[in-house]
Design a protein around this nucleic acid. Sequence first.
DNA 1: TAGTGGTCTAGACCACTTC
DNA 2: AAGTGGTCTAGACCACTAA
Lengths: 257, 257
Amino acid sequence: MTDTTPSRQIAESLRSEIANGQLPPGGRLPTVRELAERFGVSRNTVTKAMTILKTEGLITARTGSGAYVREPHPIRRLGPGRYARQRWQVTTVTAHADDRPSSEAIEQQGGQTQEVTLIEADQVVAEALGIEVGAPVYERARVMTRDGLPTHTMTSYYRRDDVEGSAITDPRPGIAGQGGGFAVLASRGLDPHEITEDIAARMPTTEEALLLELPAGEPVVEVRRTTRTVDGQPIEYARGIHAASRFVWSFTYPIPD
Amino acid sequence: MTDTTPSRQIAESLRSEIANGQLPPGGRLPTVRELAERFGVSRNTVTKAMTILKTEGLITARTGSGAYVREPHPIRRLGPGRYARQRWQVTTVTAHADDRPSSEAIEQQGGQTQEVTLIEADQVVAEALGIEVGAPVYERARVMTRDGLPTHTMTSYYRRDDVEGSAITDPRPGIAGQGGGFAVLASRGLDPHEITEDIAARMPTTEEALLLELPAGEPVVEVRRTTRTVDGQPIEYARGIHAASRFVWSFTYPIPD
DNA sequence: TAGTGGTCTAGACCACTTC
DNA sequence: AAGTGGTCTAGACCACTAA
């Protein structure tokens, strides 16, 4: 039934100790040397067992300190409500650029970094926005953090003419941040009306793992979002990478005919 | 910038060869022994590099044969349309049990196994169905396959009184299969009207990895679905485990106020 | 039967943490 | 300074695949 190499057996043994609470979340595992002696194997074999558990997301190890049972993350539930009008709709657009442009295009602020650049649309972006490949688009790349830890990235693309000169093209975070992109589009007569979200999961690339400080064995969820006006005209395409363990997506809808 | 151990460097080297197409999908990697010589390291170090790539889902290895670049899966796009009325609504319920009950509760049929059991509701199921813990519910566990490979599981829970004696409680697949559960509920005056889907991603348990024949480094997407009548009464709770690389979930909705 | 990936050992060295 | 996880080596053995 179970193909049973020593390293797998040790992993299974520790796994069940974690499952039954004998090793509680945050608790420290016995040292590699202790386990090697306990199971009568070499240190390498125990290390391998721990590698298995790490890639399963059950433990993390800190060199010089020990290996610990991973604590469950607080989970955020993401639904359509996060895009609700009342969250971004304002009578007058209060966001505005001031006169001291920062030399750096990246700044840090409570929970969000931002980088805005004018680029040429690639295949995917062009198709999503209904423009030609190579057409100019503004890319607005953000990294969201929570409790000092990065939780997800969100990179939006806008047609240049739609947002040129607006607060969106101001690189400082907070100006167009926090849904403010929708307010800017609305102020230009491009009211966001409909959203399509595509959701898929996969293992992270090495860059993503570094950027989001992902432990081994943590998948990412990639969200691709297209926002359209009431006429069906796409006004924003966005791509987000989320640390999987911190989010749940929730949708409620009537059964279609 | 990049902490650079030999095994990681080798992994990175192979990773870029895969990315630029030098090693095409389905192509065979050089042997461990060849790579060990090429990079001037021990066999173990090359093996470790390949383990990294396996957990990233980039390659799979077959003992005795070689290591191969994984081929991209055909991806199914899942949206609300899969629950559309026209897919399950029938004027008269044609599904029916015949007279020869099978001794086995599990049967195999084109693309689906099924197992039906009467159990007591646990905490999660009870809460979802709005009943008390321990109340009797029918559990209908299915494993869906495609091209002979398992793609996902789907386990539904119904209140006993809602489906007792119906085609749903018939263990043979195909009777209530293929959305037929909705038709049965409708025939009982419990028209499915609204669905809530919760979607999350994580690494598989060992059981799930075995059941879905997941290669190392393949995450799963867990979908929890609650179906309600127009009155808001929950009539089905379902839990599905999907091999992440084979699916995309897609939702289109108007921006709420 | 020759070649393949997979696992294990014993010993070594390293960077890091903790005291 | 002592203890920790992490990595690497050299060599061994195994189960499996393919000709």
